[in-house]
Nucleic acid binder design. Structure first.
Lengths: 207, 207
DNA sequence: TAGATTGTTAATCGATTAACAATC
DNA sequence: TAGATTGTTAATCGATTAACAATC
């Protein structure tokens, strides 16, 4: 059982390794990796040790092997299908963006309650009315839902996604979502909240 | 010295209180607040106690007073000026969005290296070429920078913002930014990273 | 070999949870 | 008063840091 913060750091490490590999590097030491991630070398080694470890004393880590170790463990090889619900400014930005990110995630569908918006929107991704969420998620075997609807619609939207069979949700609405089905994970991203947090931290420094 | 996780939760609590007040509620107990935040009542009381506490035994908390207590402590009353650098899909969405969010943050300027983009973009917010970051941030007394440039430009962008006098940065580029000036806070939001993290968590459950 | 760097154990640190006396 | 709920102290839990023997 790997602690969540460690899983998170290992995800960041994975991304760093992708970039390093791309840049033509072959090996890296824990201190070099730590520097690039903004954490201690200890921490890097400790995190990697949760996966069993595979570094070479005196030399460091083989970038390609380490990347594979993390990727295998967390299932980063398989493509993952996602959908976006709520095609406002951020939603429609993500509808395009998520494919690009060079990541293993593909946005394969978009949803909105507003029929006009559905007809207007210019995108290569198929777009459907919100009442079809359940049906389409099932049909397309979508694993992850990205929710960018207003607070008032978030809970219901997530429930429909879960009914459709989604395993995880990224929720941009600033509300806590209640989940009854076990095994479903919700991750919140709250941009206004982060701004507020940042501003609180700045304020705290001044006293 | 309030622990950071507590500050974060108090920010969420603040937002909840705004909504509750808006809904016409006057008091709330720690258990009710906790339920809405997805945390324990213990935790709510503990967090509030960092601010000195002000609940009434047997009755709970006065929503308006509690909101004021948090807001005063973290400086949420004053309007904060922010700018967005990098007017891609997400950047230009934020250029509009951040004002709306009903928050105390105002986006007062946008920047991009691409001159064409600057001329094309439709927005009520003033938009400038990136080389003017330092100058404009100083002139407009912008406190917070929101960075949505590609990884390759992120470090330099943040440095320019800090030179201009920004106190905090929200960075959407998936890189760790090095800061030399003390008192400046960087918060990362990595959407692709969150997707990866989510997918790793889902994967971990299956074993 | 000598220098570098890993993996792991033990020690520290900090936050969350629990419990309860105090209070409205 | 009796019931409800706070604020705080103490106990638990978990993660990070430090240190070092093992290894290439």
């Amino acid at each position: 059982m790997i602690p969540q913060p460690a899983i998170n750091r290992l995800c960041n490490l994975f991304q760093l390794l992708v970039e390093m590999e791309h840049a033509g590097k072959f090996t890296a030491s824990s201190s070099e990796l730590g520097e690039n991630l903004g954490i201690g070398a200890h921490n890097v080694r400790k995190d990697i040790s949760y996966l069993g470890g595979m570094g070479t004393s005196g030399t460091g880590y083989d970038i390609t092997k380490l990347k594979a170790l993390i990727g295998d463990r967390f299932g980063f090889k398989d493509q993952k299908r996602a959908c976006v619900v709520g095609l406002g400014r951020i939603g429609s930005a993500l509808l395009q963006h998520a494919q690009i990110a060079g990541s293993e995630f593909f946005v394969v569908a978009g949803f909105d309650t507003n029929i006009n918006k559905i007809e207007t929107i210019k995108t290569s991704v198929d777009v459907f009315p919100a009442y079809q969420i359940n049906e389409i998620v099932k049909k397309m075997k979508i694993e992850i839902g990205i929710v960018t609807v207003p607070v008032s619609g978030a809970q219901e939207t997530v429930e429909r996604l879960i009914d459709g069979g989604v395993r995880g949700v990224i929720n941009f609405a600033p509300v806590h979502i209640k989940v009854n089905k076990s095994g479903v994970i919700i991750k919140n991203i709250d941009i206004a909240g982060e701004l507020r947090f940042l501003s609180a931290l700045i304020n705290e420094q001044n006293n």
